[in-house]
Design a protein around this nucleic acid. Structure first.
Lengths: 246, 246
DNA sequence: CGATCCTTTGATATGTTTCAAGCTTAGTGG
DNA sequence: CCACTAAGCTTGAAACATATCAAAGGATCG
């Protein structure tokens, strides 16, 4: 149960409202979506590749990641999600899940039945658009990750990942720069960037010695944001976040 | 102008109908979408990174690809599209294009105004779902490419790409296996797989000598489909195509 | 039928992986 | 609350896949 009387899905609605205009009625319809609350521990599966899902996931607290496994057993993390993110929306439209969803740390999620999503989108076309836009942004982030993994070297990849997570957490109001929580092991960072845990380790050390970041103990401090962005070839446009005052 | 009196958007409608159920009225509404026909030559840009687009692209003939450019100038191709594909749907929801769309060979495309898309989806919820599902499949393909580029070696990557294109062309009724048209240079194959043109060349030669494929002159012949799939760690599930009789 | 783009080849450089071991930290049960 | 254990981090040396550079040969298209 949430700590206060803030509705469970409030963070999700806020995030959607950042990118799409929602009337009070539409926002309320989203808040009223039926859902079931679930807790999970680090590593627990929320969805398994091949599952036939009947609901989509809204992350209420903690972090989850989506991954795929190659035939040789290698894992590729394809996205990382933070609180307020709609994770399983894609699966609402696809017969069978084509990837895994796992908890990164202790998480709380809400499961919303696909049918409830469909119903609310039929009743409110603006909601359909907002959710569809969310799916489109998801796609944009995959494209950037593809560029990251396909065409950048190890240092750039890690820097880019750290920039993205910093900005997303800040945009979601989950952290004040320059520090944020990152409950990822170096192995998981490697799985997200197409690198080995060993090489991530050496890369992070190098970045530390260069005065770019300070990482460890489940959190990251960015010591030179401007330079880290330059190193990571980071440009926020692909996140399609609203322009900030700063 | 198309060669016969088949409606320009027929291939798109067929493709959508493979994954979603559409009534006759819905199919007709899609066929009736207002559009402008455009031709383009190899390399021509249909959308540029940063563009503010007002229409989405349906590919009528030929091939296009989407790409992103890293700060150092390296290109990553993030998807390849064939005739009947809806290419710019994502951009309908995003302020500014986050990638390029370019012609691979001589192409004919239809441009449909975003507004027309919105209108038809409001009138026909089933169309909204079908298009949304198309966006979701797009996402699924990005995830698989991410796995391909991040966790497979050169031979697997190229094999996987060739399998995907073979299957998609066959599913679209554009080719009979085992041969199909592939107007990509080895450099472009490299850009799609995160490799160098030189290394693609050596990899393709090896695959040729192994009796897997026969490539050249803008087309590919798969000489051992079963083995190529195994080599490429290819599993069609992520394409979310309807099950075939075979 | 020339010019440009694409493929091929060789030699060398380099980034990243692999393997293996020691070290540190965090969590758990007695 | 300490000791034990497992998980994660760090380090080094060697192997490997892929990139880079450079140049020659083929194909394609106006």
């Amino acid at each position: 149960m949430p700590t206060s009387n803030i509705p469970a899905l409030a963070a999700m609605v806020n995030k959607l409202a950042q990118r799409s205009t929602l009337s009070a009625a539409e926002a309320q319809a989203l808040l009223d979506l039926p859902h079931r609350l679930i807790k999970a521990d680090p590593g627990n599966y929320l969805v398994r590749n091949g599952d036939r899902t009947d609901s989509c996931i809204v992350l209420l607290s903690g972090f989850v990641y989506r991954s795929k496994i190659a035939g040789n057993g290698a894992r590729q993390i394809v996205s990382i999600h933070l609180s307020g993110d709609l994770v399983g929306l894609q699966n609402s439209f696809l017969d069978v899940a084509d990837h895994n969803v796992q908890a990164l740390n202790h998480v709380e999620v809400a499961l919303i039945p696909h049918q409830a999503i469909f119903d609310v989108t039929e009743a409110f076309p603006a909601i359909a658009q907002a959710l569809w836009r969310d799916t489109a942004v998801d796609g944009s982030m995959f494209r950037e990750w593809l560029l990251n993994v396909g065409r950048r070297d190890a240092r750039q990849r890690v820097a880019h990942l750290l920039c993205e997570l910093a900005l997303r957490q800040e945009a979601a109001g989950l952290s004040e720069s320059p520090s944020y929580i990152l409950p990822m092991t170096q192995e998981q960072i490697g799985d997200a960037t197409g690198l080995t845990a060993v090489h991530v380790n050496r890369t992070v050390q190098r970045m530390r010695s260069e005065g770019l970041i300070n990482a460890g103990k489940g959190s990251v401090t960015i010591t030179d944001w401007e330079r880290l962005q330059r190193v990571g070839d980071f440009c926020r446009a692909y996140l399609h976040l609203p322009a900030t005052a700063a």
